[in-house]
Amino acid sequence: MKKPGKRPKQRLVVFCCENSAAKAAESAAGDPMLKGVEFVRVPCAGRVEIRHILKRIEAGAAVLALACPLDNCKYIHGNRRTLKRVDRVKQVLKDAGIEEGRVRMEFLSSVDPHKLVNVIKEAKRP
């Protein structure tokens, strides 16, 4: 039986750049922390648009955008673009009175599967 007052677990959508986080996710596959997380693979974090994020949030999910560390983007500055967009989404959420923590952005490289698990753990924390 569900305990009264306990919020239902929020769905987590993770946008993964295929040059970094997606590779890290492949290495970390099987880790219990990744269970139930919806991964969306993108060719570059710079591909993630504001509306993609908002759509997930409207559907009730929390969004984590994972990009390569700054200066490590295969496409030079795709990750910086996304960082700006995530900041804009945060502003939109704030203006709408929604908790801005619903969207986060983190930077990690392809060789950091442990960091991926760690940021997902943090993102899952209510």
Partner: peptide, 19 residues
């Protein structure tokens, strides 16, 4: 070797080498 990025890449080359 480990990745040495903060939020910014430190250019240690470990990820590039793996690729």
């Amino acid at each position: 070797y480990c990745c040495k990025a903060t939020i910014e890449c430190a250019r240690c080359g470990v990820c590039v080498a793996h690729t």
